[in-house]
Design a protein around this nucleic acid. Sequence first.
DNA 1: CTTTCTTTGTGAAATGAATCACAATGTGAA
DNA 2: TTCACATTGTGATTCATTTCACAAAGAAAG
Lengths: 241, 241
Amino acid sequence: MKPKQPTDLMAPPERPAPVAGAAGRAPGVLSEKHVARLSVYRRLLQDRPAGAPPEIYSHDLAALSRSTAAQVRRDLMTIGFTGSPARGYRIDQLIEAIGRTLDAPAGQGAALCGVGNLGRALLDYFTIWRPQLRIVAAFDTDTAKTGRVIHRCRVYPLAELEAVVRAQGISVGVITVPAASAQRVAEMMLAAGVRGFLNFAPTPLHLPDGAYVEEMDITTSMETVAYFARHLPGAAATEKP
Amino acid sequence: MKPKQPTDLMAPPERPAPVAGAAGRAPGVLSEKHVARLSVYRRLLQDRPAGAPPEIYSHDLAALSRSTAAQVRRDLMTIGFTGSPARGYRIDQLIEAIGRTLDAPAGQGAALCGVGNLGRALLDYFTIWRPQLRIVAAFDTDTAKTGRVIHRCRVYPLAELEAVVRAQGISVGVITVPAASAQRVAEMMLAAGVRGFLNFAPTPLHLPDGAYVEEMDITTSMETVAYFARHLPGAAATEKP
DNA sequence: CTTTCTTTGTGAAATGAATCACAATGTGAA
DNA sequence: TTCACATTGTGATTCATTTCACAAAGAAAG
């Protein structure tokens, strides 16, 4: 074989394809894991019992969130929040600081596509939800479902998606349709202005840059858990040699 | 302040606490991300249309799975699967090879706790499922639900959890109870022999080493998506300066 | 006031994962 | 047969994230 040029000459260098994700983050924008941890911290702090002290140490928050003290301190550092030695972090201020990072000042609306079993469960899950981030519209093709209001959320026919999403300035889409329709529905939402997608369909979405997709692949998670249930240190169970 | 010993003398060095996860993997055991990708590869290959060619190139599988060709090759390398230059990977053999890695030879059973909206949706989701990994029992405290069969799955009272889990050799637990009961239910399952947990409750589980927990935190995922919907390159939308 | 203790904030180091880049391999065409 | 080419397999490298480890900062006790 002969020595070759940098491998590909006409093909672009191997990238995650022109596909969505937080791949190339703008400077000052946090990483996905980072945002997820902040979200968890906030909820844990909000769920605190009434009598609890108004401050918390990094190692206590770490214990609550299954993290480490160093991780917590680093996370808070990057959002510019500071505590005091020997007293820890002020909980009320911390909740507020995380909110400034995570929440849209004017609030954000989400739309859900596919009012099946899972869709209805999620609507229910998010009914009691702060105004900061709410599912404000649902869509389905089934005329038996459209026009009704399920868990306080109106169900529109899919044909009205573009109009409703635009009118309400919806920026987040939750996809709970069957795998076969997921890509089509996602593209409709994208065209209507939705930028962030939470995809429960068991197939990856292919969207251009400028869209962010989080795959919630229940089947894959289940298989992952099953794998580690067998392969964890000290797990001889269920395994046939 | 005075120079100090290695920081902590009696406290153990900061670790993710004696808490579950794939933290310290045994040698030869794959990483979580790795397993997740293999699971996705397999499903994509299985879902292939009938007329498709019996082989596939790494870059084609990468495109399907939102990955890169190099990543795919590396993944298959670590499970010891090889293709042929200029012809790619044999799909049928690859599906089988992934199965040898992911599946328990004798199959694995899962139990679901909490037959609410979300629990029922998941039971439905997993009804048509291969024998390799199935939800074989559900549990709930509500006597209106126990004794019935929902989506082909029998619902037992929580009191029978230990007996049923032991009798059926169940190794995976799916938690869809309210946050307040999640920890208790997880501990019951752990005591009965469950090693892997898929936790949909909006609070992290605290289990000792020897248990693996995958958090399926829908609220956090939603907040993450919302954040990136606003902060993605070229996303001025929904943001108020 | 001084000492002792625990905690924060953060460079530096370590770990882990993804990507690069290229020799080796096989295919099909001439 | 030989050539040209696209692809695999993989060491080396880069990049991202986590962890370490310690100076600085209070607080509380003496």
